[in-house]
Amino acid sequence: MEILSISNLSKNFYLHNPGLEIKSCQNINLALEKGEFIGIVGLSGSGKSTILKCINRSYLPMQGEIIYDSEAFGKINLSTATEREILYLRCHEIGYVSQFLNVMPRTTAKEHVMNALVDIGIDAKAAEIDANEMLVYFRLPETLWGIYPATFSGGERLRLNLAHAMVKKPRLLMLDEPTASLDNKTKLLVRDMLVKLKDTNTSMIGIFHDIEFMDGVCDRVFNLSEGRFVS
C-alpha cells in the first residue's frame, strides 16, 4: 500500500527582482510504501529539499500531483489541498524535521516538545508524560530538559527536533538533512534513532548529503542531479 505517490512534480521559483526563473526539481516521480524509508541524495542545489518542502506545502508546487493517503481525508492531493486541510495534516499526520531549530523564545527543551501536543489541544499533564518519553527515547540528557535550546549543539538540536516531531506520532515523516553538520559519532547516534523510528512503522523520506551513512538504513535510495532522478 502506498502512503505517498508523487507524479510529475516540478517546481521553479520566479524572482520578480531581477526577473529571473530559477529551476528546481523537474518531473519527479516517487512512490513511498507504508512503513518504507526512502533516502534522497544529491549535491547541494540539486532540488532535494524542494521535493520535501513541496510535500509539506512550504513551497507551492508548480506542476504535478502529490497524492497522500490520509487517515482523515482518504486520498488527498497535497499540491491542491486547502490550507486548513494541510494545517490539519501537519498537526495530526505529517511531520517535518530539519537541522534548524525553530523554537518560541523563552521555551525550554521539554516545553518545546510538550507544546507540540498542547498546541493541538492536548492537556498539559498528558503532554508532559509523552514529552518525557520522547526525550528519553531520543536520548536527550535529562540535564538539558529545562534549558533553552538556543545553546544546544547540532546533535542535541536534532534530537530535540526529532522528539518534537515524533511526539505527535506522525504517519509520514520528512527528514531534511538530519545529519548535516554533525560529527561522525553523532551521525551514528542519529542513524540509530532512524533505525528505531523505522521499527515504529513510520513511513519516512529523508534527504542526506553523505550516501555512505545511508547504507542499510534506507529501503531505497534515489540520486537527484539538477532537479531530476538519475540512476
Partner: peptide, 18 residues
C-alpha cells in the same frame, strides 16, 4: 495569502518577495 511558512519561504507576489 497562504500558509505562513509558504508565504515566508516561497512568496509569490513581488511585494511579498521584497
Amino acid at each position: 495569502s497562504g500558509l505562513t511558512d509558504q508565504i515566508l519561504e516561497d512568496p509569490q507576489h513581488a511585494f511579498t518577495q521584497q
